[in-house]
Write a protein that binds this DNA or RNA. Structure first.
Lengths: 134, 134
DNA sequence: CTTATACGCTTACAATTGTAAGCCATGAGT
DNA sequence: ACTCATGGCTTACAATTGTAAGCGTATAAG
């Protein structure tokens, strides 16, 4: 599955993919329910069209069970997150990680617990950084 | 300028905007040079079309000096970065800041200096966090 | 003066994207 | 059996997007 090239996924298609990743295999109606739960303006026809397009893009696959399709991702959320993140970083911050992180940290008031966890994360990174030097 | 709604800026348009923000006012040929310096596959015609579209979108404005147009952004980089960042966070991480930050920190080996600066940034955030509690 | 270059506008085209109806077949309920 | 609901495919349309040529005009260079 990791050998698949990551297809380009549009913003609305992301919503559909996230609904599938939230639990799969999943039928169209299950996916539509999840989408509608998050945003009631979703129309089932639209969702089905996007599902079909994502299949054509090789982001999803399905197995027909009777006349019901059961969808399954062909690309992991992790892979797509990585691709989208890299693209976003390059496009909006010219690839500069530090200003991007600073932007997010400053733009939102993080709770003390969140800050503590991030600090922990940064601490965890330091030994690796050292290891690379040796 | 902050009263302007932030137009939707496509990925390629972002490149053009970044070239303008890099120094403005700027003529089309200056912008084209900057774009080509970053990526030689840019075609001047394409750049000019995108400039015209960004003008129509109210992201840019221009002043004609002779037959040369001198472009100026109508929206700040900061505003557009904020809008794109919020949209990205919502789309790819469902609005969850912590996993997003974790993703970026883990996906790239930050230097010790970078880590230290981020830690500093987090320290800087703590007093505000406390202030909110009182 | 002639030719080449530069300038922006108009035009064009294909692909992508978001939206959703129409159609036919199947399944469920009465 | 009939009717209605459900399922996915096909079709449709408009807007957006990336790409760039064509055109007329002005300016610069030889």
């Amino acid at each position: 599955m990791s050998a698949n090239p990551i297809p380009r996924i549009s913003e609305t298609e992301w919503e559909v993919m996230r609904a599938v990743w939230a639990g799969h295999p999943a039928t169209a109606s299950e996916i539509i329910e999840r989408l509608a739960a998050a945003d009631p303006s979703w129309h089932p026809k639209t969702a089905k069209t996007l599902l079909a397009r994502l299949v054509r893009k090789a982001a999803l696959d399905y197995e027909a069970q009777g006349r019901r399709y059961v969808y399954e991702p062909l690309v992991t959320e992790r892979e797509c997150v990585a691709a989208a993140s890299a693209s976003f970083l390059e496009r909006v911050f010219g690839g500069a990680l530090k200003p991007m992180l600073a932007h997010f940290v400053e733009s939102r008031r993080l709770s003390r617990a969140e800050l503590a966890e991030l600090r922990q994360l940064l601490e965890r990174e330091t030994p690796e950084s050292n290891r690379r030097k040796s």
